[in-house]
């Protein structure tokens, strides 16, 4: 058994007696991974505990809390999932007072797979595995080197494959709105493939990911057409950090920037005329 999986299993068994259940990933008979609520009444289920491939669990926490508010839960989180939970907490989607986070540190291979800058947890009191430094993102860097015309061509090549399955939105740990702009005929029309340009679906989604994307790259992972939309979300996250000093999912009490008024000096950094 994988050393990290074994250590995680031991930590879970330590936490399990004190909580109602633990959210983690379980492998089913067909070999697929899915989020699962491990309970002490069914200890045998822990045999199916899995850590890879990853799957975002913040939304699982949100749904369980909706049905069972106040449940005392443990939750296995990677760095990206922890950021997702923190961001959901700030948007009043989850309550963290009864949640104990179990941090699972990513390995170098996993971080390279995700092109992750922060493959480690920051808030979890219990952790499993050794935290490692972030890795560079050659795909996004390569994209940045392109001219405007090349970027347009690049996205045309990529987006012509989009079948608008909404998989990227459905898997996203930050897409929890009850009413989604992407389902509104006013903004995203239906009935065309490929969709008319400019690609409203992708542009609106990029805009809505501002200060929300936790860089988990799940949207790219689930995409049946392998469209690397995370490139845009990541670049925008960098701009938001520069303009508004906000880093998604890092601090528990720093407020997201879009809803607030301009702070001292922020207007100057937006680059708008006076």
């Amino acid at each position: 058994m994988d050393q990290r999986l074994e250590a995680l299993l031991q930590t879970i068994q330590k936490v399990l007696p004190d909580v109602d259940g633990i959210i983690g990933l379980k492998v089913n008979a067909a070999g697929h991974i899915a989020p699962h609520l491990f309970r002490k009444e069914a200890p045998a289920e822990l045999d199916g505990l899995a850590i890879w491939p990853k799957y975002p669990t913040p939304d699982t926490l949100r749904l369980i809390q909706k049905a069972h508010p106040g449940a005392k839960l443990g939750m296995v989180v990677r760095g990206c999932e922890e950021r997702g939970v923190v961001e959901m907490f700030k948007h009043a989607q989850v309550d963290l007072s009864n949640i104990s986070l179990i941090g699972l540190q990513c390995t170098r291979e996993e971080a390279e797979f995700c092109r992750c800058a922060k493959p480690y947890t920051a808030h979890a009191k219990l952790t499993v595995g050794e935290p490692i430094e972030g890795v560079p993102d050659p795909v996004t860097e390569g994209f940045l080197a392109k001219t405007r015309e090349e970027r347009l061509e690049y996205w045309k090549e990529q987006l012509v494959r989009c079948i608008k399955c909404y998989g990227c939105r459905n898997v996203c740990p930050q897409c929890f709105c009850n009413v989604c702009a992407l389902e509104d005929e006013k903004w995203v029309g239906t009935g065309w493939l490929p969709m008319p340009l400019p690609p409203m679906y992708h542009l609106v989604r990029s805009m809505h990911m501002t200060a929300k994307c936790v860089a988990c790259r799940e949207c790219e992972e689930v995409c049946p057409a392998d469209i690397p939309m995370a490139i845009q979300y990541r670049l925008i996250a960098g701009d938001v950090k520069e303009m508004f000093g906000y880093e998604t999912g890092v601090s528990m009490d720093e407020k997201p920037p879009q809803l607030l008024v301009l702070a001292e000096g922020e207007f100057e950094r937006t680059g708008l005329p006076h």
Binding site: E150, S206, T210, Q232, I236, P257, L262, T270
Partner: peptide, 23 residues
């Protein structure tokens, strides 16, 4: 502070356009 919303959203939208290859 209504125009603060524009001052916050529009620069990001400009970036989205830039990264999409639209001037």
């Amino acid at each position: 502070t209504g125009n603060h919303r524009a001052a916050k959203r529009m620069p990001v939208l400009k970036k989205v356009l830039e990264y999409s290859g639209i001037d």
